[in-house]
Nucleic acid binder design. Structure first.
Lengths: 211, 211
DNA sequence: GTCTATAGAAGGATAGAC
DNA sequence: GTCTATCCTTCTATAGAC
């Protein structure tokens, strides 16, 4: 029985992990192959041995990070539970993920904006129009009650997700504006509190809209 | 009387304008001096003649863009009008600015995150703690009525500004998710509609909060 | 002030030994 | 599979003519 050398996977995994960190922190353009090699504790040549080029290494990393961002959102919004429960569950789950991956939002927003080619992989991962239809079908009664017309659903969706995502994208700006958020622990506390603040805020707004 | 050569200012201005465009679109790391020179219709050497280095050119551009982003926000939030009016006015004014400068949010979020040195200029431009105090003093009655405790003010502020800023930072992601937003005109319509949606949403949420 | 030409550094990629 | 050495391109920056 042929046994895969332990070192094979270990090395490739170490490279991938290092690359993920560096790309996430610096973005594609500012990331350096040398830094990735240093963090993986191997030399530059090995990066090319395993991934051929910076572009290819990046694309591998990007796909994984894209999934990490969207898979959970999608699965929550597709669930068959009340809209109110869905909102609560979304903030709980997504904020937890983002606390573990605080650079994810800014990284993805940027790379997608600057590199339209990456679009292909996205369309497969997130079928928004499908999600939108499911949501509108599942919750047509509730949304009508809240006075949300079909055309306004994008406005609502963007609002909901921005309340979770934006603080992470802006966290360095926030940190320098509010002394209280200086360290990571304070910021994480802020985001923990935000789970309830955001759900309550959204639910309150919906229950009190002008129709 | 010594007359400043017309060409002096014209060239410097053309460089500055070109640099603004390129830095805003690509970010510092991916921006190329050659591209700036091409857009300004001069050659690379002149860039260095006027601004010495890429870093210095960038910093000049950055300071202007930072002001463009925050000056209006600050002036609106410092005004002596009711909280409700302030919210409406903020969305009206800031969304107008951002429609004219759609790349501003992502550019600033990024560069500030990646380059902590830029912080200095920011602290002068936006004195958040001052603004927060003014807001809490001016609106203590209203905020109490809405059940917003002093500690929750950051949660509210981040929510308010994110509703205007986030869609611009995420607009390429949104464009590829929703076919309706494909072109700029549709996106701008979305943001025009968002002025009312956002103010109504925030006001409704505040008036209906659990205390 | 503006240009051409080129220096000099950095970074991605590959050859070849082990 | 992994390393050292090196190539080659790209990019910032400067020298020097006009």
């Amino acid at each position: 029985m042929v046994k895969t050398k332990n070192t094979d996977l270990q090395t490739q995994e170490r490279i991938f992990k290092a690359a993920t960190e560096v790309f996430e922190e610096k973005g594609f353009a500012a990331a350096r192959m040398q830094e990735i090699a240093d963090r993986a504790e191997i030399n530059k040549a090995l990066l090319h041995y395993y991934f051929r080029s910076k572009e290819l290494l990046f694309e591998a990393v990007f796909q994984v990070l894209l999934k990490k961002m969207f898979e959970k959102i999608l699965s929550v919004f597709m669930m068959d539970i009340s809209f109110e429960k869905k909102i609560k569950l979304y903030y709980e789950e997504h904020i937890n993920i983002l606390i573990k991956n605080p650079n994810l939002p800014l990284f993805l927003l940027n790379e997608i904006s600057h590199n339209p080619e990456l679009v292909q992989g996205i369309r497969e991962t997130l079928r928004y129009s499908e999600m939108r239809d499911v949501i509108y079908k599942q919750h047509s009664r509730e949304l009508r009650k809240y006075g949300i017309k079909k055309g306004e659903l994008p406005q609502l969706m963007v609002t909901v997700v921005s309340m979770a995502i934006f603080p992470f994208a802006a966290r360095n700006v926030m940190k320098m504006m509010m002394e209280q958020l200086g360290d990571n622990k304070s910021f994480n506390n802020f985001m923990q509190a935000r789970k309830d603040f955001a759900s309550d805020f959204v639910i309150a707004a919906l229950k009190n809209r002008k129709k």
